[in-house]
């Protein structure tokens, strides 16, 4: 497969990839580059070589998973590139080819995919109090631990319509609307994407000698050394 050609089919790539002059402006403003060993300039530069081997290495790398998709780079690139958009196209291709399981950060796609799409398809929103736990989110603080322990009361006090019919915040989305979301997933490749991520992740978990529960927990929480800018 000619990876560059494949990337060119992606509308994010069509929008975000033009000639890069390697100026490094994107890297200078990038929050990910401050934290990770990450350099968006280099990514666009590698893609620009059209060198299949180098692009394949990128698709299997940790690097493409470091971006936060904040799009700060889009505003500043003097050539109207969007390195963040190029990253989105690279990630998409990495997922389609199953290359994402080759990197620790790529493997995180499994718990992310399960959690977010589980919420969308079951509750109609990406984030929902029914699945947001203090154990997974200790940074939400004692105040939110309290709020989650008293969900019905706290949300009622604040004028939400938690889990009930009708309009309002946190209302129950009617089943017919959830069915439409599912149908959209089926028609547009969303369901296929979930199955693909599941298939490649299961294979990787087996290779790593883990059950899916262990794999989920491990990919969600484990951070190896070597990712950070300060040498750690």
């Amino acid at each position: 497969m000619d990876y560059f050609e494949e990337l060119c089919r992606d509308y994010r790539f069509k929008e975000g990839y033009h000639t890069c002059i390697n100026c490094g402006t994107c890297t200078a403003v990038c929050p990910a580059a401050e934290f990770y060993r990450y350099d968006p300039r280099q990514i666009v530069s590698i893609v620009q070589t059209r060198d299949n081997a180098r692009i394949e290495a990128l698709l299997k790398s940790e690097t493409i998973w470091y971006c936060g998709e904040c799009m700060s780079c889009v505003t500043r690139c003097p050539r109207r590139n969007g390195p963040g958009l190029v990253i989105m196209a690279l990630r998409d291709l990495s997922i389609r080819l199953g290359f994402f399981t080759e990197s620790e950060k790529g493997r995180q796609l499994y718990p992310l995919t399960k959690a977010l799409n589980g919420n969308v398809l079951n509750y109609g929103y990406c984030v929902h109090p029914a699945t947001f736990t203090y154990k997974d989110h200790p940074e939400s603080g004692p105040v939110f631990e309290w709020a989650l322990n008293h969900k019905e009361d706290v949300y009622a006090r604040l004028g939400a319509n938690y889990g009930a019919d009708g309009e309002g915040a946190l209302r129950r989305i009617p089943q017919e609307d959830l069915d439409e979301l599912k149908a959209i997933y089926d028609v547009t490749g969303g369901t296929e994407r979930l199955e693909l991520v599941e298939k490649y992740s299961r294979a990787k978990a087996a290779e790593m000698g883990m059950t899916m529960e262990e794999y989920t927990e491990y990919t969600f929480t484990h951070c190896s050394e070597g990712h950070f800018n300060d040498g750690r």
Binding site: Y11, D92, T113, N117, V120, G168, Y185, T188
Partner: peptide, 30 residues
């Protein structure tokens, strides 16, 4: 005006790279 039938736009799932662009676009089209 608000209707109870609206949902997420899928934006967080999309920017976490867990759904294809066409899925996100079609949710928004709805």
């Amino acid at each position: 005006y608000e209707t109870r039938h609206h949902t997420t736009c899928g934006g967080i799932a999309y920017h976490s790279d867990t759904i294809p662009q066409e899925t996100a676009m079609t949710i928004v089209a709805r």
